[in-house]
């Protein structure tokens, strides 16, 4: 009986140990991940600020020096220490970052907030819907005036209010 019992216990421990070698995070999926790819290039729409290419799902740390000093940085630590989101404010644009699988500050949203800046395609706050369609085409979905163009795993959202552009947002689809 002893031998059988020891054999059984050893088998059980082996199973648990083997299982322990399997994948998965050790603490309830505590990886702070949005599963966003990172890098400096994007096949989606890209914003340009002072000649610097800014794309969602890329690491802001690689371009921070080139963007210059932000007018403010807001820190948003998530509940229970699951990483920190940041909002970098530059003249006319806010850049939001979140922790991703590959880096701590993956760009999640680029928000154009004034007509001081425009997209590389020439659209800014106050442009007309006709200007938007001429620049980006008509292959968009329209949800309550938010024209959403999808390209390369990201969204470009242009909110039309009263016939003119009210907000321009480059957004990672990892946020959906």
């Amino acid at each position: 009986m002893k031998k059988k019992l020891i054999g059984l216990l050893l088998t059980m421990l082996c199973v648990v140990s083997l299982a322990a070698c399997g994948g998965g995070n050790s603490e309830g999926g505590n990886d702070g991940s949005n599963n966003t790819p990172t890098g400096n290039t994007s096949s989606g729409y890209t914003f340009e600020y002072k000649g610097v290419s800014v794309s969602v799902d890329t690491d802001i740390e690689t371009i921070l020096d080139k963007l210059g000093e932000p007018s403010s940085v807001f820190e948003d630590p998530s509940c229970a220490g699951q990483g920190t989101d940041f909002v970098y404010r530059y003249s006319g644009v806010d850049i939001y970052t979140s922790p991703s699988k590959d880096c701590d500050k993956a760009i999640s949203t680029i928000l154009i907030i004034s007509d001081e800046v425009e997209t590389p395609e020439g659209i800014t706050i106050g442009s007309t819907q006709e200007d938007v369609e001429a620049a980006y085409g008509t292959d968009y979905s329209n949800n309550n005036g938010m024209l959403t163009y999808e390209k390369g795993g990201m969204h470009l959202g242009i909110l039309i209010k009263g016939g003119v552009v009210d907000s321009i947002q480059y957004t990672s689809t990892a946020l959906n």
Partner: peptide, 12 residues
Amino acid sequence: AENIPDGIPLAD
């Protein structure tokens, strides 16, 4: 509390 961002405009 400083530099609190406004909300990102939403479609809905």
